[in-house]
Every structure is written in structure tokens, then in C-alpha cells.
Design a protein around this nucleic acid. Structure first.
Lengths: 185, 185
DNA sequence: GAAGACATGTAAGAGGTTACATGATTGT
DNA sequence: ACAATCATGTAACCTCTTACATGTCTTC
């Protein structure tokens, strides 16, 4: 089973979704640490159904096309639970911008400052998005997000990593800009 | 030009290397933010040579096979310099472990603590490796690593992101373990 | 009338990993 | 004897992205 499968199961463990809804979730909330396009999602849902980890039923709608709503089976839930309990290898970072900072000595100082500030700006934006979701979880999952058996807890700690990561990245960018400004004179 | 090409050029901008040496560097120093196998590296070096960004000469050796040592051309250096000066889209994180924490509410507390502690351990190890390289740069590039036009400077700031990232990751893991231990009772 | 959301699919292509392939030397 | 290092390459496979494909309804 590939990682994408577990991404889909992890959403369906929370509630039923159509392929289209999952596609949207894979862009934003989950998409922050695992993205996928609809061209990957639709075939993968069909495959998970063949394996018996999900089932679907067609829901008819008015004015919009019918949709297939997928439900996690007991087998799917168990498969996900087991995968979560197994250790993972630490992820290898794959960040094009870090490759650029590795060659930043070749750029002229003004250009260097510009690209670093641009990157910082993007991470500030992302941080704001996370902060918004944090507010949402703290409100909606009020009494639950502190209980380890609640999905809100899991969403919350995952989100905290996003926030913490972005803050760290922004601080690092600012440190570089400071050094470039101080040392370029 | 794909990102891998720039990874190779960024190494050759520092000094000449054979394909085999680049392969090793792509595992460790650069490999921390952009990895590649030799099956990608050898054809890509050939392609860069066709494009005129690198040249190679065969160096004969005793007891070990001959090697092709690659050198960056002026055109290659200019191509790299321009790429560095262009803004990049913020990288999308792709971390299987974050996907697991997103479903951590399904695992029993003991298993949850175990997987998080295992992940923390791996990041502590990685941090130690980075700290070692940091010492190395501070010694070898003593007077240079503070100058933006020096390759040591670029190596240093990139490495600082690695260190900062690992520290942040470890703190986050420890926070989760604390919460799981406190709340599981 | 055009653009965009809803909804699901397939096909082609790029990028990346694993495996296949060869061969000498050095260390256990 | 066996594994590991040095050294370079190709082939098969998997994953992921981009593009092709279709059709209705609502909003500008």
C-alpha cells in the first residue's frame, strides 16, 4: 500500500466523502503535507474499494451531477490503525529554495535579498492560513482537541507542526536577510 | 531545466567532481534537501554536457577504474546564477510521518508514544550530523563563511536551516509525547 | 456568451526508484 | 571465500503532473 492510500483512508476515517470532496481536501488541509490531484485520487479510491477498505454509494443530486460517496470499512480502519502504529523513516526534505540558498553566493546581494524576502512572504501567508485553521479547531473541537482519542487532537498536533515549521522558516529567512544587509556594505 | 540539473551545477560551481563523487555528495551534504541516485546523475551530467554547461575529461587512475571529472563552464555558471536570482514557489512538505500523526487518534496511546519517540530519535541523529558539519565549516571556512560572496556562507546558511528544522521537529515530537503521557492517564 | 463550480474519469509524459550489468582491488 | 569500495552505465517500473474528455447549472 502506498502512502496516498493512507492519506485517503485518514480522511474517510473522519467522515464519508465523495471523490470530489477528497480532491479538495487534498489541496488544502491534508494537502499541506501530502498532495494529490484528482487524476490520482479517483483511480486510487476504486483500488481501495477492490481491496475492501472502502465502499461507495451513488448519491443523486439536483442541478449538479450525481456523486459517489465513499465510506471506510472496518478492514480499512484496521489497516490504517496498523500503519499508524508502525515507525516511519524520517522524511527527506525536498526544497528547491534550499538548493538556491546553497548557491546564493553567486547572486548579487540585491537579488539575493529579493528572493529570500519573497520566500519569507510566502511562508508568512501560509502561517496565516494555519493560524486560521487553528482557531477553527479550537472552537469547533473545543472539549475534544486535548483528548488523544479524538480526531481533533490528531488534527491539532499535525497543524501545530505546520505552524511551528512556518515560524521557523520565516525566522531563518529573516536571519539571512539581516546578514546580507549587514555584510553587503 | 529541471531542479536536479541545478543541484549538480551547484556542486560543480564549488569544485570539479566526477560523477561518482557527485553521487556521494547527493547522498549526504546536498542530499539533505535534494537527493538523487547514480542512475539519474550519470545521464543528467551527459545532458548538461550536451547543453554546454559542463565539460569533462577522463582521469586515469591506478588500481581503480578511470573516472570522468566534470568542470562547470562559464555558461553553466551563468545559468545557475540566473536560476538562483529567480523567486521560487514555497516547497510543499511531503512527510509520511505527518500523515501518521493526522491519524494518531486511532492508535493506542502506548503505540502512539512509541512511533513519535522513534521519529524524534531519528531527527536527533540527523541534528548531530548537521552539528558536525557546522563545526567543519566554521573551522575550514573560518574567515569566509560570513561573506555573502563565499561558497562557505551559502553552505553555512543552508546548514543553519537544517539545524533549525531538526530542532523544531524534535521539540514538536517531545510536546506530543508529553501530551500523550499526561492525557492518557 | 463566458467563466467557474460540480463531478468523474483516462492518457501521455516527466521524474524518480529499484534492479540489472560489469569488473578490478582491498579488507575481513 | 565474501563483502565493500571505486566507477559508470542501462532498463523496468512506479508515482505524480499535465493534458484530454464530457456535461449541467449558476453567476457575471
Amino acid at each position: 500500500m502506498k502512502t496516498l492510500s493512507y492519506a485517503l483512508l485518514s480522511l474517510l476515517a473522519r467522515q464519508d466523502f465523495s471523490g470530489y470532496e477528497i480532491k479538495q481536501l487534498m489541496q488544502a488541509p491534508i494537502g499541506f503535507f501530502w498532495r494529490a490531484r484528482h487524476s490520482q485520487i479517483y483511480p486510487e479510491l476504486a483500488r481501495l474499494e477492490e481491496l475492501g477498505y472502502v465502499t461507495h454509494e451513488v448519491v443523486e443530486q439536483q442541478n449538479v451531477p450525481d456523486k459517489k460517496v465513499y465510506t471506510l470499512t472496518a478492514a480499512g480502519r484496521e489497516q490504517l490503525r496498523q500503519w499508524v502504529s508502525e515507525p516511519s523513516e524520517a522524511a527527506v526534505i525536498r526544497d528547491e529554495f534550499l538548493l538556491k540558498t546553497f548557491s546564493l553566493w553567486l547572486a548579487d546581494p540585491a537579488a539575493a535579498i529579493a528572493v529570500v524576502e519573497d520566500q519569507a512572504r510566502q511562508h508568512v501567508e501560509q502561517l496565516r492560513v494555519y493560524e486560521g485553521i487553528k482557531q477553527h479547531i479550537e472552537t469547533e473541537g473545543a472539549g475534544e482537541f486535548m483528548q488523544p482519542s479524538s480526531a481533533y487532537f490528531a488534527s491539532y498536533i499535525t497543524l501545530m507542526q505546520g505552524i511551528s515549521y512556518e515560524q521557523q522558516y520565516i525566522n531563518w529567512c529573516r536571519m539571512i536577510v539581516e546578514q546580507l544587509e549587514a555584510l553587503a556594505d
